[in-house]
Nucleic acid binder design. Structure first.
Length: 421
RNA sequence: GGAGGAGUGCCCGAGUGGCUAAAGGGGGCGGACUGUAAAUCCGCUGGCUAUGCCUACGUUGGUUCGAAUCCAACCUCCUCCA
């Protein structure tokens, strides 16, 4: 079932909305799922790797799907892969991922939860849940696991999935560890259906194979009908994967990326992406989405600001969003500076002169001092609105402006205001 | 089991003893232009407070004043034969 051409009239508001928003790519059984969603509350889950301490905008599609579902009376579960992160999903990858340790995974789970607390409502008895699949996956004994679940899978079938085939065809090694990943994800779905009556799994289109396995396991193992729904893989107009910038991923966690930085990311959307992004990542009524999408030329800038503010509000809250927009307006209206410090630093750092390169790395404008060096040489770095040409420039107390602040900018869009105390 | 071939930087892809931190393209970043867009043009694109040093061409050793380039072993993959 492909998105965009519903064969029949949908009964459930949930699916209507998801289709209208462009959040549906494939579904295991659209009509039956529609009936189930129309019938009453459905518990749905989306899984995330615990490989970083925050989710990023690349995760926003499944998260928005979960948010809509919650809004329309259903119950989301976010499954964090504390167990599966110890294995690593091989889907569509040509190499095994580095494996993570227990402490790291535990820390990441805490961060991830924090990064989505505004997006999904976890409060109260009936709120969304976060569960960690380590809860059950680490409990299994090997033989027990093989006997209960191994008997439900055939290698023949497992080899037919594109996610595996791509690796095999690329002639890259696929270890048994990775090969079993899809079993683990299938077991996750089954466990969630047993423990929480979860009936729907939402994931990226690269998860289709893993999801199908879960649906089939539910049917064979427990005789239950489970559903899978994938969101489209989204690329930007320039064809790159969404959500990567020079400074790295666009994180949802405010400590990894300030709400203003987040707002800026959306404000910088390419013209051609605006209509799609409004539909996918905001909750504006479709009539408004269409109106904004019809704007042309420089008028689109207004649509971009609305897009940025809406998405920021969903992730960081309305207050932060309004704030970010004010900063953005001020910053680019004239030769303005940021109104509020983006970073705070101890005054003692300046005692011996703080290296400009270090500072650039510290605020995240460069990943390495070499990169910072090049930025300076390219003439892209400004300190207090002055272009700096000497990479060896040290910053001292004498550079501070009012309120012991210092402005630092790279390029046209990356700006920081440092406050020293 | 036998015979050939391949493994290069974020990606693709040249390079067969010194001029190679490695052509060219893509992507990314910076500059100019603009609307904080796109297109175009110019520059940069391993690390290091740095006109030098260090680390890099599957892995480990070897030959050589000098190796991505030659030799050996190993790993992974491809093609043909059985």
């Amino acid at each position: 079932m492909e998105a965009g051409k519903p064969a029949t009239k949908l009964k459930s508001e949930a699916l209507q909305v998801l289709l209208e928003r462009g959040l549906v790519h494939q579904c295991t059984d659209l009509e039956a799922l529609d009936a189930r969603l129309a019938d009453g509350q459905v518990t749905a889950y989306a899984g995330f790797d615990a490989t970083a301490s925050s989710l990023h905008v690349g995760h926003l599609m499944p998260l928005m799907t979960m948010r809509w579902l919650q809004k329309l009376g259903h119950k989301p579960i976010l499954l964090l892969g504390g167990g599966t992160s110890q294995v690593g999903d091989p889907s569509f990858r040509n190499e095994a991922r580095p494996l993570l340790g227990d402490e790291q995974i535990a820390a990441n789970i805490t961060g991830i939860r924090h990064s989505v607390e505004r997006l999904i409502d976890f409060r109260g008895e009936d709120g969304a849940r976060i569960v960690n699949n380590a809860e059950w996956l680490t409990e299994f004994r090997f033989l027990e696991f093989l006997r209960e679940f191994g008997s439900q899978f055939t290698v023949n079938r497992m080899m037919t999935f594109d996610s595996v085939k791509s690796r095999l065809e690329a002639q890259m090694p696929l270890t048994v560890l990775e090969f079993c990943y899809m079993m683990l994800q299938a077991v996750d779905f089954l466990e969630l259906s047993r423990r929480h009556d979860c009936a729907l799994q939402v994931g990226g289109s690269d998860q289709w194979g893993n999801i199908i396995n879960g649906v089939e396991l539910g049917r064979k193992g427990d005789g239950k009908q489970l559903f899978g729904l994938t969101v489209p893989l989204i690329t930007t107009a320039s064809g790159t994967k969404m959500g990567k910038t020079a400074a790295g991923a666009v994180w949802l966690h405010p400590e990894h990326l300030s709400p203003f930085g987040f707002w800026q990311f959306w404000r910088n959307t390419a013209d051609a992406d605006v209509p799609r992004f409004l539909r996918l990542f905001t909750e504006l009524p479709m009539s408004e989405v269409l109106r904004l999408s019809s704007l042309e030329g420089a008028e689109l800038n207004e649509a971009k600001k609305i897009l940025a503010t809406q998405v920021t509000a969903i992730v960081h809250g309305a207050e932060e969003a309004r704030h970010a927009r004010e900063q953005g307006d001020k910053l680019f209206a004239g030769e303005g500076d940021l109104a509020e410090p983006t970073h705070h630093m101890d005054l003692s750092h300046l005692a011996d002169g703080l290296g400009l390169l270090q500072l650039l790395v510290h605020v995240g404008f460069a990943q390495t001092t070499s990169e910072a060096w090049r930025l300076v040489e390219a003439g892209g770095v400004r300190l207090n609105s002055q272009v700096i040409e000497d990479p060896r420039r040290k910053i001292s107390v004498g550079d501070l402006k009012v309120d012991d602040q210092l402005s630092l900018a790279v390029g046209k869009r990356r700006k920081a205001l440092l406050a020293f105390r």
